[in-house]
Simulated assay, not measured.
Amino acid sequence: MIEQQMLGAGLGAVIGAVLALTGAGGGILAVPLLVFGLGLSMVEAAPIGLLAVGLAALVGAVLGLRQGLVRYRAALFIAVIGIACAPFGLMLAHRLPNTPLALVFAGVLVYACLRIWRKAARELRGESPCGEREIMPCVLNPLQGRLRWTLPCARALAFTGMLSGLLSGLLGVGGGFVIIPALNRYTNLNMKSIVATSLAVIALVSTGSVVSASVAGVMHWWVGAPFAVGAVLGLLLARPLASKLAGPRLQQLFAVVGCGAAVLLAAKALLG
């Protein structure tokens, strides 16, 4: 058991380093790493991966708050809805067999990686990483510097929270690949504020999902605790290197690795 815990801590450190270098969304590799590295099932790996991603996101969210980048009202609104929806995702995860659950996760992983690739490609072409913005029901009030809360804005953010919460409970993913594109599409925030706000939502929703998993008795803390500690340490150690190593090419490398992990996960599920 000690060897497995040490291996779990090492794998967590890898995820923390990936998060530091690639930003929000990098934690989606936590579940495949737990499945292949520790031989866990999807249902067992999901809450453990979420614990690690949530703690790492919390570190980033606190730093974002100190820099005044987090839109905390929007983050709380999205997170409250996400926390309310997460138990439904967890319930669904326990009703689905491992094979379809793994295939769904593989599909989500490919989707997330394709979005990361396209964002990196835009940066390499010298374009804005935010891309074209056409629908923005949530815009900043130039006088107050706060988002204008309208019914379309609340509806868009509520849907974002619902989807991120369901995926959090179902697959054990933080939901950055959902939240970041949604904030990019529905708001006129800059990318730094979008990422910081997304990290705050991920930290809050992950906490709710981990609590739900613990109450349901499906959280394996003897693996989850060292994995999460390793993730935070990996994040803190790799963070100083982020300014030197991070960039669109690294994002594209992560996207390729993620797609490869999705193929392996799908093959493992189908071939046993």
Results as ranks from 00 to 15, higher is better:
Pro226Gln: 14
Val104Pro: 06
Val139Met: 06
Ala121Asp: 09
Pro142Gln: 11
Phe88Thr: 14
Ala56His: 07
Ser209Thr: 13
Gly25Glu: 00
Val110Thr: 07
Pro181Gly: 05
Ile48Gly: 01
Ala75Leu: 11
Ala154Pro: 07
Asn141Val: 02
Phe227Gly: 02
Ile202Lys: 05
Ala17Val: 12
Ile135Asn: 13
Val256Cys: 11
Ala112His: 03
Val35Gly: 00
Ala216Asp: 06
Gln252Arg: 10
Leu233Pro: 03
Ala238Leu: 05
Leu51Asn: 09
Leu189Met: 15
Leu171Cys: 15
Cys153Phe: 04
Leu237Val: 12
Leu29Ala: 12
Gly247Leu: 04
Leu90Lys: 06
Arg95Phe: 01
Arg122Tyr: 04
Ala61Val: 14
Ala231Arg: 00
Arg118Trp: 08
Arg146Val: 07
Val110Tyr: 05
Ser41Val: 10
Arg66Pro: 10
Leu38Met: 13
Gly176His: 04
Gly258Ala: 05
Phe159Ala: 11
Gly131Asp: 09
Leu204Ile: 09
Ala24Asp: 00
Ala267Leu: 14
Glu132His: 08
Ile202Thr: 08
Arg71Tyr: 08
Trp221His: 10
Glu123Arg: 13
Ala61Tyr: 14
Leu250Arg: 01
Ala93Tyr: 04
Ala246Leu: 10
Lys119Val: 12
Ala200Ser: 13
Ala154Asn: 05
Arg66Ser: 15
Leu11Phe: 12
Val80Ile: 15
Cys113Asp: 02
Thr207Met: 14
Arg155Phe: 15
Gly8Cys: 02
Leu38Glu: 13
Tyr186Met: 02
Pro240Met: 05
Leu92Phe: 06
Leu147Ile: 12
Gln67Ala: 15
Glu44Asp: 05
